[in-house]
Design a binder for these strands. Structure first.
Ligand SMILES: [Mn+2]
Ligand SMILES: [Mn+2]
Ligand SMILES: [Zn+2]
Ligand SMILES: [Zn+2]
Lengths: 158, 158
DNA sequence: TTAATTAATGAAAATGATTTTCAATAACAA
DNA sequence: TTGTTATTGAAAATCATTTTCATTAATTAA
């Protein structure tokens, strides 16, 4: 198992410390706890849901700080901010628990359930790369990332 | 040119009348004007932008009605509601002006510009179909539609 | 056509997520 | 330890969207 960027659960001070310091950010309890929450779930949590979980352990942490921290983390490229159309933004680690990396989403338009689509068909990745390059040059557009959302009805709702 | 669903600009009462009646909806001036606005632009307008344009012609039409109408139109499957991450929803006709159909979007994270990506690579469509089928069965999920958003920097912003 | 029915509307108020303000706090470099 | 200043929490502000409710007007029945 590669150790370069690897990170498990009991890794001491947290792999993100260096990243923070490098950007001139201070390491604070709210920031650590918010990252812990994100690293402990497979869900796509809203700011308020994250707040509630942090709040259980550190009741002094406020919702405002959660919003601010999530913005910082998104700017640093540590978390993705996702909108599935239910009016609130949702967040997930770019490099999620169990080393989960880039993936796409199935969203149930009825109950709001979100399924990560990780069974990545290799052809898809290739085609996406090719498409990104074509679009990049055709529209003189520097593509940094992309999102694919499938909307429909989950097994319970259809 | 097929006439079945075809529609140009000077088509009289509007091709959507039948659709409305079929759903039990009444045909009103606000609804007609909102559809006109959407049919006259290639942009991805917010509710307020649509409101401003309708308001110029019919100052009595209110923003509330624009929101309500857009919801109806989305439910009817005549318009798509899109979120590009700037905090306001944007709308476009499913079957846009010049007969533009399904397409994807390039979004500039700096200036917010949205580019329709219609230069559709045929392989992409095929692969997407295949992927939809695979996901459908693997997750027992009924996929109704999908969105692909590429985020990055446009020629002016990079 | 006209009257009756009721969907649709507009204004104002309410909502809910997110952002801003600002004085107090705490991280950390020296 | 101390000084500097980034970060914080609470409260207020903002902004898009929704709800409420009395009025209006599209459609239907006569
Ligand atoms: Mn995910
Ligand atoms: Mn478009
Ligand atoms: Zn569902
Ligand atoms: Zn731009």
């Amino acid at each position: 198992m590669p150790r370069g960027h690897g990170r498990g659960f009991g890794m001491g001070p947290g792999w993100w410390h260096g990243r923070f310091r490098g950007c001139g950010y201070r390491i604070t309890i709210p920031r650590q706890e918010i990252l812990k929450v994100l690293n402990q779930t497979e869900e796509h949590l809203s700011a308020e849901e994250i707040y509630l979980r942090v709040h259980k352990v550190y009741p002094s942490v406020g919702l405002t700080t959660v919003y601010r921290t999530l913005e910082v983390l998104a700017d640093m490229g540590l978390v993705f901010r996702l909108e599935f159309g239910d009016g609130k933004a949702r967040y997930e680690l770019v490099e999620g628990p169990k080393g989960k990396l880039h993936h796409h989403h199935l969203v149930c338009t009825d109950c709001g359930r979100v399924i990560d689509y990780t069974d990545f068909i290799s052809e898809e990745k290739e085609l996406l790369d090719k498409t990104e390059k074509a679009l990049s040059s055709r529209h003189n557009f520097k593509i940094l990332n992309h999102q694919i959302h499938f909307y429909g009805l989950c097994n319970k709702c259809k």
